[in-house]
Design a protein around this nucleic acid. Structure first.
Length: 489
RNA sequence: GGCGGCGUAGCCAAGCGGCUAAGGCACUGGUCUGCAAAACCAUGAUUCAGCGGUUCAAAUCCGCUCGCCGCCUCCA
């Protein structure tokens, strides 16, 4: 079953057919490193983490390149504000980026090139464009001439006339055409700069990706990814540079993910409505964020809210409860006992992996893939609740195999990777820390109450229970004794 | 103004020409319990923003209308 991917370039879903069969080459635009990352960056990293994991799960080799932009206007401005160098600032936030990525359990790409370490490659590329008359130096800058590239606008579906009509472009006397964009920027005094044939300066934003992708993936590669806001101008310009210089198709498929929104507005620094990854991780388990992000298809907008995070938390817990129940199964099965699972149940459980793949092959539909896991869990719970104390070894094995499959598949989304009992216990401990009561005190109350219950002193029993409830502790009486949990506020 | 996307049950969200319109959360009922809570089970759209059209067949394709959002400036 082939993987179908929505290609921004063709605006259609297309089958993934790697140039080298079995080896997918992927380039993703990473962060500009001058601040902490927000949830939008998390979505990007997580989406491509999932895509790479899935392609590898299918048996492909994946070469995954994600760059760091470590020199640009914002970095220079911020470094000046903080009285530091661009290098120190960029590296500091690259380190912070890794802190966040590690917490989220994002796998490292194959390579993570930095712009400043590829100045020569960029100069070479710009030189080639000038030689081909597709770029021109002017006043220490070098510009790409959009008129020299017949297909300019093909990725974003624009044409030069329309764009100039509604142009919000500042007038730049050096440019021949207002839509021309900078490949090399002359540096002002005090700014970081590199020597070049056009004088001291620094690279424009787009050229780094053209240069680095060519170096590591070749002139034509399989997939290029990024956020939808990069389609224009960044990716459009990259495409123009690369195809202009190489005379070959740049990328076979373009993948662009949607934004994270808050109250249906794009999260952005200018609106001031962004939440950093660490803001979220202070309050939620990383898997809750992953569960939330993968509950919507990657191309659709994803609206962040506390309520949505709570829902994700509840949903994830439901999955873990099922895995914990399977883990807790005692190893006392009997061969002579009849199996409880009906043919339909078995079929349903056994079709999980196929359904999961079907969903993922359809443009990485994680929302649907999650649904297939929930369906399986429902069937497993049905079996679990009617399972005798000494279950048949067939049922036991069925459940354990199902749990293992769930963990394997969920791992592509990076969820259900903690031992279930640990996840549930850690969540409980973290919540307990937010109350002003200790576990020992709770257990003492439970003991006292259990004596009251033995005495059938319901008034006292309920009083103890209510007192605990006021402190945020809920009790639950079960066949195996009385347990407790922290009530969600 | 140009380009693109979205509008499916109370909320979130799949489905993108044909099996009963997935799944999650919430609600309600049940199991459990001394009573609860938690957990589990069960239950909800004759209908997919509206109106037309194409088709044997449409939430799915086409057109128009309404509403929301994004890009066109740095942005994941």
């Amino acid at each position: 079953m082939p993987v179908k991917i929505y290609n921004t370039l063709s605006r259609k879903k297309e089958e993934l057919q790697p140039i080298e069969p079995g080896h997918v080459r992927l380039y993703v635009c990473g962060i500009t490193s001058y601040d902490y990352c927000h949830i939008g960056h998390a979505r990007s990293a997580l989406a491509f983490d999932m895509i790479v994991r899935y392609l590898r799960y299918l048996g492909n080799k994946v070469t995954y390149i994600r760059n760091f932009t470590d020199i640009d206007d914002k970095i220079i401005t911020r470094a000046n504000e903080q009285n530091t160098t661009t290098e120190e600032l960029a590296n500091r936030f690259i380190d912070e980026f890794y802190v966040d990525m590690d917490k989220l359990g994002v796998d490292r790409p194959t390579m993570e090139p930095k712009a400043t370490e590829h100045i020569q490659e960029m100069i070479d590329l710009i030189t080639e464009l000038i030689e081909k008359d597709m770029a021109y130096p002017a006043g220490g800058d070098v510009y790409y001439s959009v008129n020299s590239f017949a297909n300019y606008g093909k990725l974003s579906g624009r044409n030069l006339e329309d764009m100039q009509a509604g142009a919000r472009i500042s007038v730049n006397e050096n440019k021949t055409n207002p839509m021309d964009f900078v490949l090399w920027k002359a540096s002002k005094p005090g700014e970081p700069s590199w020597n070049s044939p056009w004088g001291p300066g620094r690279p424009g934003w787009h050229i780094e990706c053209s240069a680095m992708s060519r170096k590591y993936l070749g002139s034509t590669f399989d997939i290029h990814g990024g956020g939808q806001d990069l389609i224009f101008p960044h990716h459009e310009n990259e495409l123009a540079q690369s195809e202009g210089a190489n005379n070959k198709p740049y990328v076979k498929m373009w993948i662009h993910h949607g934004f994270v929104t808050i109250r249906d507005e794009k999260m952005s620094k200018s609106l001031g409505n962004f939440l950093t990854i660490r803001d979220i991780l202070d309050h939620y388990h990383p898997e809750v964020l992953r569960f939330f992000i993968f509950s919507t298809h990657y191309r659709n907008p994803l609206d962040f809210s506390e309520a949505a995070m709570q829902d994700s938390m509840t949903g994830l817990k439901r999955l873990y409860e099922c895995l914990a129940a399977v883990d807790a199964l005692e190893d006392n099965c009997q061969d002579k006992v009849d199996s409880i699972a009906g043919a339909k149940d078995i079929k349903k459980i056994e079709s999980l992996e196929e359904n999961f793949q079907k969903a993922m092959n359809n443009d990485f539909n994680t929302a649907q893939a999650q649904g297939s896991i929930f369906e399986t869990v429902k069937t497993m719970n049905k079996i679990l609740r009617t399972l005798p104390d000494a279950p048949s070894s067939e049922d036991h094995k069925l459940l354990q195999t199902a749990a293992a499959t769930i963990k394997k598949l969920a791992g592509i989304m990076g969820i259900l990777q903690v031992p279930a009992a640990v996840y549930l216990a850690v969540g409980k401990a973290e919540m307990l820390a937010k109350t002003d009561i200790s576990e020992a005190e709770i257990l003492a109350c439970i003991e006292e109450r259990n004596q009251a219950r033995i005495d059938k002193n319901w008034a006292k029993s309920d009083e103890i229970r209510n007192n605990l409830l006021e402190k945020g502790i809920e009790l639950n009486d079960g066949p195996k004794g009385t347990g407790w949990s922290v009530k969600r506020s």
